[in-house]
Design a protein around this nucleic acid. Structure first.
Lengths: 107, 107
DNA sequence: ATTTCTCATAACCACATAGTTATGGGTTAG
DNA sequence: CTAACCCATAACTATGTGGTTATGAGAAAT
């Protein structure tokens, strides 16, 4: 279930939404209430953002009783990595641009 | 001159704009007229998109007589690569999600 | 059974943004 | 010098989108 780069870029374009994804990536699974806390927006807004992230495959939801736990699906970022790869690793791309990037990719 | 992830994501979120960047990456430097040809939108719209890409550091413009040549600056993608790295290469991130991504990054 | 709690959806609003046409500045051609 | 050309900016419009409040469905607690 790999989403299109378009869906991914659009989902990650909003800073609030990207912030939610970052929190899920760094702090692990969390409930909607926990995510709402500290997001600076209302709970319905958070739910909407999570819906968009879910549609892009970036998060998964797990229902447990009356609360929903969300977690990041890092592998959904794969098309993004592939895309940057295609844009950079290309025949005529100048080397001084590539050097830097390839270093970062190798850690 | 490295731009923020936010600026980059927002610049690349629009499909038309991303298409322009892709063409510059794959086909090399081109004039505005050349880019307008095949973009399916008017020349002013293309100029506006290029302005946004330039502001994000993703393209460079070179003036030559009455025409402007644009070229991709692939190194501007670095913050994006770093960001995905931070989101994936993190302590508790599950391995089955990482395996796949790291393979892609190593080519 | 009733109340409370968590979350999602609906309806609405304000603003951002991607497109258009019109126009002007600088450059080459005639 | 004048005309044609390339591109950028201005002004405007329509649609998308991120936020709100109101409400309801489902589960837990009393």
């Amino acid at each position: 279930m790999t989403a299109s780069p378009d869906l991914l870029f659009r989902a990650l374009a909003d800073p609030t939404r990207r912030g939610l994804f970052e929190r899920l990536c760094l702090d692990g699974e969390q409930t909607v209430a926990a995510l709402t806390n500290g997001a600076g927006i209302s709970q319905p807004a958070v739910s909407k953002h999570l819906g968009i992230l879910r549609q892009a495959g970036l998060v998964r939801d797990r229902h447990e009783g009356r609360q929903t736990h969300y977690s990041a699906q890092q592998r959904a970022l794969a098309p993004l990595v592939d895309w940057t790869g295609r844009m950079t690793r290309f025949w005529e791309a100048r080397f001084d641009d590539l050097e830097d990037l390839l270093k970062r990719m190798d850690q």
